[in-house]
Each structure stands twice: as structure tokens, then as C-alpha cells.
């Protein structure tokens, strides 16, 4: 947000799904999976997208990958609106935007050798010669921290962490500018997660690739991201600098979310904000601010008037509590805040 020209610019992105009902009723209900989402990702930076199941974070990722057609809104990539691309334009866009998904067991074809898996995007898109493809595969295996002989093996011969490395190598084969990472470490064992998170940081530093990091693990997101966006029922409620959002959350939902993140040490003093109730049915979202029925600080107007996402001291917030506070972080009204967990020497 700070002057760097954005690689990806998402503007009022909307995706509604027609669901529910039988026969004549079919399609009567609208699931507002993504309901007016805007953000930007500069080159070489990471935006973390967090929220609970059903908040629309995965759909947002899929819209950017153009696996779903948006209902409305704009996805600007290098100054071009990619929601209106023709076949050829889309093909080119997909070379620049790649994905790594949660389940490395499901995303690799078990009948292909790893070399062929990694080379497939090259062959499909650039029609490179086999010698060039082999050289590129070797280079990608090195990048992903896999042995070169891996090219001759099949996915089942690898552990989960190594399979995720293969998926990362494949995603990087076309030198994309943006990689959508959808829960890339959730399926991995604890001791392996750090390996993959380190690899992702290292690759970003070396290649200058941007990430959209979609995950529910707040610590992993806070670790990898430059900026964090928090979603609730299809809308962004808070977005800003990763450290500011994670350590000094402003929106009551963000505060509750980061308060619910488990402590790293038994002595981490933190205020427990335990929200009552559950995420409401997205088919019938509450009126006004969708978070108001669970919000510990809801005002009367929150139930009928939806707050807009507005700039508030270096970040964007969608909350009536901050109406009228235009200053920076220090001048914003003092809210109950979870205390900052003290870092512990390892």
C-alpha cells in the first residue's frame, strides 16, 4: 500500500453462488461467498488472508486464479482487468499466476513421474524442447530443496513435506509473478511445516514472487505475510501491516481471532476473548454489521447499519467503533486489546 506499484489489484470483488431449495425453489437463495472485497499485492510481497471456514478466503483465492468467474468486480493484474480476458489472454495470465494447495497427496498425479509433473506446465505453455525442460526441472528441484534423482520417481515415493516441495517446484516452473498458497502447510506434520515455511520465504527473497497466503493458522500467516486481511462472512473487516494487525488488532473480530490463537508459551499472558455463538449461516447473514450478534462491543447502530471499510491510521477497518477517528494508530480510541505476548528466548 505504500507507494510500491501493485502487481495485483482487486476491486469490489463479488462472487455469489445460487444455492439451496428443490425444483422451482432452486437458485432462490444467494450465498454471498465474496461480497465486495478489495486489496492489492505489490510485487515481491505477501498478503495473508485469514478467517474461519466459510468466510470466503478460499473463494477469493479461486477467483484470483480464475477458477471461478466473479459475479462482479475487477481483478487488475499488471494494469489489466483479468476478469474480461479472452482465451488467449487467460492462458497468458495463468502462466503468471500459479497455485499450491493444501493436500499434496491430491494435487499430484500418482501415475506421472515427478520430472514430468514439474515439466508439464512448461510443455503445455511454452512447448520447450526436452533437453531444456530437463535442465529446468533440475533447476527447480534444486530450488525446492529436492534431490535431482527425484525427477525419476513417483509421488507415492515421497513424504507429505517432500510432495509439497514438488507442488511448489511445479508452481514455480513458469516463473510466475504471483502464487496463491491455499493452506500450504496445514496437512503437514509440525516438524515439516517450518521447512516449507522457510522454503517459501527463501523463494520469495530469491525470485521476487508475490504470495496470496490463505490459511487459518494465524501464527503461520503472521510469520510469512507483509500484510494481513481478515475476512468475516465474505467481507474484509480489517486489513493492514501484518505486525500491526496481529499485535494490535483493532476490529473486535480480529481481536477475538488473535486472542483465540494458542499461546506459544504457558506464561504468555493474554486476555481471553471467547466469542459467544458461531459464525451465522452465510445464506442468511445478519443485518447491519454481519459480526454484530457475536460482537462484545456492538453499538445499537451496528445491527442495522453496515460499516464501510475505511482507512484508519495506516490500516483499513470496517467497524462503527472507529467512526470519526481519522488519526494514526495512537490517536485511535483505546479499545480493549489483547496484551502482546512477550517473545520468549528459545
Amino acid at each position: 500500500m505504500n507507494g510500491t506499484p501493485a502487481l495485483l489489484e482487486v476491486e469490489s470483488l463479488v462472487k455469489h453462488f445460487a444455492v439451496g431449495g428443490f425444483a422451482f425453489d432452486r437458485g432462490r437463495l444467494l450465498l454471498r461467498a465474496v461480497d465486495g472485497v478489495s486489496f492489492a499485492i505489490p510485487a515481491g510481497r505477501t498478503l495473508g488472508l485469514v478467517g474461519e471456514s466459510g468466510c470466503g478466503k478460499t473463494t477469493t483465492g479461486r477467483l484470483i486464479l480464475r477458477l471461478e468467474q466473479p459475479t462482479s468486480g475487477m481483478i487488475g493484474f499488471l494494469g489489466r482487468d483479468v476478469t474480461r480476458l479472452d482465451r488467449e489472454g487467460l492462458r497468458e495470465y495463468r502462466r503468471s499466476v500459479q497455485a499450491v494447495f493444501q493436500d499434496p497427496y491430491a494435487s499430484l498425479d500418482p501415475r506421472m513421474r515427478v520430472g514430468a509433473i514439474i515439466a508439464e506446465p512448461l510443455v503445455v505453455n511454452d512447448r520447450v524442447g526436452s533437453a531444456d525442460a530437463r535442465a529446468r526441472v533440475a533447476e527447480l528441484l534444486d530450488l525446492a530443496g529436492l534431490p535431482r534423482r527425484a525427477a525419476e520417481l513417483y509421488p507415492h515415493e515421497f513424504s507429505g513435506g517432500q510432495r509439497q516441495r514438488i507442488a511448489i517446484a511445479r508452481a514455480l516452473s513458469l516463473s510466475p509473478k504471483l502464487v496463491v498458497l491455499d493452506e500450504p502447510v496445514s496437512a503437514l506434520d509440525v516438524s515439516i511445516r517450518a521447512q516449507i515455511l522457510n522454503l517459501l520465504v527463501e523463494l520469495q527473497d530469491r525470485l521476487g514472487v508475490s504470495y496470496l497466503f490463505v490459511a487459518h493458522d494465524l501464527a503461520a500467516v503472521a510469520h510469512l505475510s507483509h500484510e494481513i486481511a481478515v475476512m468475516y462472512l465474505g467481507k474484509i473487516v480489517e486489513i493492514g501491516d501484518a505486525e500491526a494487525v496481529s499485535l494490535r488488532p483493532r476490529h473486535p473480530y480480529t481481536q477475538a481471532l488473535f486472542s483465540a490463537a494458542l499461546p506459544a508459551h504457558p506464561d504468555d499472558a493474554r486476555e481471553d476473548i471467547v466469542l459467544a455463538g458461531e459464525v451465522p449461516n452465510p445464506l442468511r447473514p445478519p443485518s447491519g454489521c454481519a459480526f454484530h450478534p457475536r460482537c462484545p462491543q456492538a453499538l445499537p447502530r451496528c445491527s442495522h447499519e453496515a460499516p464501510a471499510l475505511r482507512a484508519r491510521g495506516g490500516r483499513m477497518l470496517s467497524c462503527h467503533l472507529y467512526d470519526g477517528a481519522e488519526g494514526d494508530d495512537h490517536e485511535a480510541p483505546a479499545l480493549r486489546q489483547p496484551s502482546v505476548p512477550a517473545p520468549h528466548p528459545s
Partner: peptide, 18 residues
């Protein structure tokens, strides 16, 4: 090896191997 909120973008101590 566990990242922590507020820990910064430092390199995590990964456990090598499987």
C-alpha cells in the same frame, strides 16, 4: 520450529529430514 504471532519474518528452526 513453531512460528509465533509477533515473532517476525525470521527463519524458523526447521527439523531436517522426515
Amino acid at each position: 520450529s513453531v512460528p509465533r504471532v509477533g515473532g517476525g519474518r525470521v527463519k524458523l528452526t526447521a527439523i531436517e529430514g522426515q
